[in-house]
Amino acid sequence: MLMIQRWIGIGILSLLALPLMAQKGLQVNTLFDGRFKKDHRAVEVLIKGKELKKYHLSLFRSLTVTNAPAVFREMETLVCQDAKSAVDKEVGTIGNRLYYGFYCFSEEEGTFRYLFYRNTSVKPEREKLPEATVVYMEGQVTLEELKQLFQ
């Protein structure tokens, strides 16, 4: 009986860790390690569950950081590393810096994975403080459906 309880406990802990492991295999996963939770320059969002069902998503995760050039460089480096394994991508650069990127990663068991990036600090003219954003999404939504959602 004790052995069964242990396995059930391990199973429950594994299920709780799933959302945290969603970006597994992506370098940007390191951005969601909790270090920005108390950083006043950062806004981290995690949405899962019922709120996303109507969009056919199972996970939405984003990090927006304002006025932090060193963090912007780190984010860009990590996104560029992940871009190498993307099966589809759309990017825009300003100078030799990545301004925006949209990446689609291979489907795993009917689940699509997407990564978005935007860095306003590379724009020569800005109206507000520079910021960089990384968004990770996964779910049953196809690329075409996702584009329709954001039009």
Rank of each mutant, 00 (worst) to 15 (best):
E74K: 07
T93G: 04
L129F: 08
L143G: 12
F60N: 08
F102P: 08
E107C: 10
E108H: 14
V65E: 08
S62H: 11
R41Q: 15
F116P: 02
L115R: 06
F36S: 00
V65W: 15
T133G: 13
M75Q: 13
R73I: 03
F112C: 06
L143P: 09
V134K: 12
T111H: 02
Y117Q: 11
E90C: 08
E44R: 14
L59V: 14
V65Q: 12
Y114R: 06
I10L: 03
V91Q: 10
L146C: 10
K38V: 11
V45H: 13
L52G: 00
A70G: 01
S121L: 07
T77A: 09
C104H: 09
F105K: 04
V79H: 00
Y55D: 08
V135L: 15
I10G: 02
L59C: 02
F112Y: 13
K123M: 05
L16V: 13
R61V: 13
F112A: 11
Y99G: 00
F32T: 08
K38L: 15
L115I: 12
E51N: 10
V45W: 12
V79K: 04
A68M: 06
L2S: 14
L18D: 03
D33F: 02
M21R: 07
K48P: 00
G11K: 01
L31T: 02
A68C: 04
N119W: 09
S58R: 10
L52E: 05
L57C: 02
Y100W: 15
S14H: 03
L143H: 13
Q27H: 07
K48F: 12
Y55E: 09
E51P: 00
T77D: 04
E138W: 00
L149H: 15
N96M: 03
A70Y: 02
F36M: 03
Y136E: 11
P124N: 14
D39L: 14
G49P: 04
K48W: 14
G9S: 04
D82R: 06
E90R: 15
Y136T: 12
E107H: 02
E131P: 04
G25K: 09
F36K: 03
N67K: 12
P19V: 01
D88Y: 14
Q27R: 01
V45S: 14
H56K: 13
R97W: 02
L16A: 14
R35V: 05
K50P: 09
I94D: 03
R113E: 08
Y117G: 13
L57S: 00
L20Q: 12
E125N: 03
A83R: 11
K89V: 08
K54Q: 12
Y114N: 08
E90Y: 05
T120G: 12
K48H: 09
E74Q: 09
L57T: 01
Y55Q: 12
N29E: 06
